[in-house]
Amino acid sequence: MNRLLSAGLVGVLAATLALPAAAHTGHAGDAMFLQGVLHPLTGIDHLLTMLAVGVWAAQNGGRAIWLLPTAFITMLSGGAVLGMSGIELPAVEAGIAASVAVLGLLVLLNRRVPVAAAAILVGAFAVLHGHAHGTEMPQTADPLLYGLGFVLSTAMLHGTGIALGLARHLPRRLLAFREPESTAPSNRC
């Protein structure tokens, strides 16, 4: 369990530390992409929510492991388009704060929810996060490169959350695969 957890954290740290090397002068496209990658990693609200989606998906198991991150990324992209287009949404910041609290509580309580309801919930929160990404896009950024950056970063955070969620339950799963001990008396001489 500790190895899987350590590997996931080392992977996130390595990816985060390696990214600034791409922002050398003369690589404007790289810099725009980098700005998108860094956006979810530099805001604690985004970071916690995206990790929580992954952990909660792992806790729910089955189809939720791929469906919740997919729903989040799809709706995140739609919200970003709205934000980049200048379309206002009400209470974006309050909704983002609520996403941290609600998803954090669901993870803490290990609350399983029907997959469709869970996908709708994370999708609704994702629209708000995407809207924030879109409205906070730098004026000089290429929307496609910036968007690809924060989608990749979001997927990486979901994957890390899934790994953390699965690692948390790994010892129980390993114990379940042990050979049951025989209760019958042995016929040894």
Score class of each variant (00 low, 15 high):
V107P: 10
N110F: 07
R168L: 09
A7S: 13
N187W: 08
H24R: 11
T140Y: 11
L121Y: 07
A98F: 02
L82M: 15
E88H: 12
P40F: 05
S153R: 09
A64L: 07
L82E: 04
W66H: 02
L105R: 00
C189T: 13
A71N: 10
G95Y: 07
R188Y: 14
N187Q: 14
I96Y: 05
G61L: 05
M1H: 12
L89V: 01
G165I: 00
G95R: 06
S6G: 12
A101F: 14
Q35Y: 06
L19E: 01
V37P: 03
T160R: 07
H39T: 09
E136Q: 09
V12T: 07
T25C: 03
A7E: 04
G79S: 05
R172T: 05
E88Q: 13
L19Y: 01
A101N: 03
F125E: 06
A71P: 03
P171L: 02
H131N: 12
R172K: 13
V92R: 01
V55Q: 02
A132I: 05
F72E: 04
G36Y: 10
L174G: 15
G61F: 06
V81M: 12
G123C: 04
A52G: 11
G62N: 07
I162Y: 00
P185S: 08
L103P: 11
S182F: 12
G104I: 03
A91L: 11
A31C: 07
S6M: 09
F177W: 03
S85P: 04
G95E: 03
M1Q: 11
V10D: 03
R188I: 15
A132S: 13
N110V: 07
L48E: 01
L82F: 14
L128D: 07
A163K: 02
R178Q: 09
G159R: 05
R63Y: 04
L68R: 06
H133D: 04
M84Y: 09
G161W: 02
N2E: 08
E88A: 13
P180D: 04
L48R: 02
L170H: 10
A94F: 06
T70R: 08
L164F: 14
M156D: 00
A119R: 04
A91F: 15
L164D: 06
D142L: 02
A176L: 11
T42Q: 09
A91P: 01
A94V: 14
G104E: 14
T49I: 12
S77W: 15
G165P: 06
A80N: 07
Y146G: 12
A80L: 10
E179W: 02
A58G: 13
A176K: 08
R3H: 13
E88V: 11
A18M: 10
F33I: 08
I96K: 08
A132T: 05
A98I: 06
M84F: 02
L34K: 14
